[in-house]
């Protein structure tokens, strides 16, 4: 096969992703480069809510879960040279020790939270979710701001995502891997009054 016909490697696609102009963010999953725009206000509001609830913040409430390193929109690169920027990702302290300042982080997250939006839904629910499964992310939360739903999944040994619980509207969520943190979901939804 000639050089002109060769498909780019994941590593080469990552270089292209890194070269995307602001404010685009690139992800590389199974040989495809996805360019994402800045998140919508509703999307960003959920991200802020998740961070406040799991890292602690000025609005008080329950203390953050101990033993976790939680990050917003940090680049994660897998051994396959696939790279993603999860909306919120978390690592148990023991696994991330020594790598907190890495960029990208090459330690597979223990938990990821993805906030869905029209432009990213198909990717997040398809290739990205599959990637998390293949790479062994233990827990996945999917949040749909439009439907006001949080669904929490755990990765089974056969690679399937098992539903742990789903919460809607103003429910208070307590679900793995943060069972000890009650989360008032109504604070996540952007209300335009």
């Amino acid at each position: 096969m000639s050089e002109a016909l060769r498909l780019p490697t994941n590593a080469e696609l990552c270089d292209e992703a890194d070269a995307l102009p602001e404010p685009l963010v690139g992800e590389v999953i199974e040989g495809m480069l996805y360019a994402m725009p800045r998140p919508t206000p509703a999307h960003a509001h959920v991200e802020e809510g998740v961070i406040l609830d799991l890292r602690g913040g000025p609005r008080g409430g329950s203390p953050p879960p101990p033993g976790w390193f939680i990050k917003l929109e940090v680049e994660v690169r897998f051994p396959t040279d696939e790279k993603v920027v999860p909306d919120v990702s978390g690592w148990r302290d023991a696994r991330i020790r020594g790598h907190r300042n890495d960029n990208p982080i090459r330690v597979t997250p223990d938990w990821v939270c993805e906030v869905l939006s029209d432009g990213t839904r198909r990717k997040d629910l398809g290739p990205k979710r599959d990637l998390y499964g293949r790479q062994g992310v233990g827990h996945l939360w999917l949040v749909d701001p439009a439907a006001r739903v949080l669904e929490a999944f755990a990765l089974e040994t056969d690679g399937r995502w098992k539903l742990l619980a789903s919460f809607v509207d103003d429910a208070v969520a307590r679900v793995a891997p943060f069972e000890e943190v009650p989360i008032a979901l109504e604070r996540w939804w952007l209300v335009d009054e």
Partner: peptide, 17 residues
């Protein structure tokens, strides 16, 4: 749900995207 879900004997699984 935002996904298609499969039910098997009390357990719910997300179907592949």
């Amino acid at each position: 749900s935002v996904l298609k879900l499969e039910y098997c004997d009390g357990t719910i699984y997300a179907m592949a995207g």
